[in-house]
Design a protein around this nucleic acid. Structure first.
Length: 155
DNA sequence: AAGGTGGACAACCGCGGCTGA
DNA sequence: CTCAGCCGCGGTTGTCCACCT
């Protein structure tokens, strides 16, 4: 299957979004929603490809996005979810309201990976350290499962 | 004070699944 | 049943900024 490149090199813009572009996208989606990402930029008058618009909206402009630092609790949830789901960032994001897969992925690659490594190093240093599964207590697991149990994909 | 380095985050690329014709 | 197009996802890259030497 041969696929046309996303931004068919038709003079479409790439790179960082300007506040003006953001505003155009927000206004358009407020008015008409985002039925068809591919058609959206044309209709909204944006020189971007649909993919780029979608990404910008999902990761940055959506009104329900919780911006700012991750709490320790959120980080723990991410670590546990990652243990179970692996690199299924969107699945993890679905369980953390207001957080995006991109954001979670970034956080993972920047500090959680290091934090985990540190924890495991500490575990390994302990003599007779029983390495169960690098997971935490059963109550934690229980709590976590209740979180995992309800995916919320409805957009 | 200037240059180097690493962290944080936004954005892009390409693949694969899903769906409708 | 097959094919083409769209969407979503995960991996990766680029850029900016803060901190360190």
């Amino acid at each position: 299957m041969v696929r046309a490149p996303c931004c068919e090199k038709m003079g479409l813009k790439k790179g960082p979004w300007t506040p003006e572009e953001d505003q155009v996208l927000i206004n358009y989606i407020k008015l008409y929603g985002h039925g068809n990402w591919r058609a959206l930029p044309k209709q909204a008058g944006l020189l971007r490809c649909g993919k780029s618009c979608r990404l910008r909206w999902i990761n940055y402009l959506r009104p329900d996005i919780k911006r700012g630092n991750f709490t320790r609790e959120e980080e723990d949830i991410i670590i546990k979810l990652h243990e179970m789901l692996g690199n299924r960032w969107s699945a993890i994001a679905a369980r953390l309201p207001g957080r995006t897969d991109n954001e979670i992925k970034n956080i993972w690659h920047t500090h959680l990976k290091k934090r985990l490594k540190k924890q495991q190093d500490n575990l390994n240093k302990r003599p007779e350290g029983k390495i169960i599964s690098s997971s935490s207590s059963s109550t934690d697991l229980h709590q976590y499962r209740s979180v995992v149990a309800e995916p919320r994909r409805s957009e």
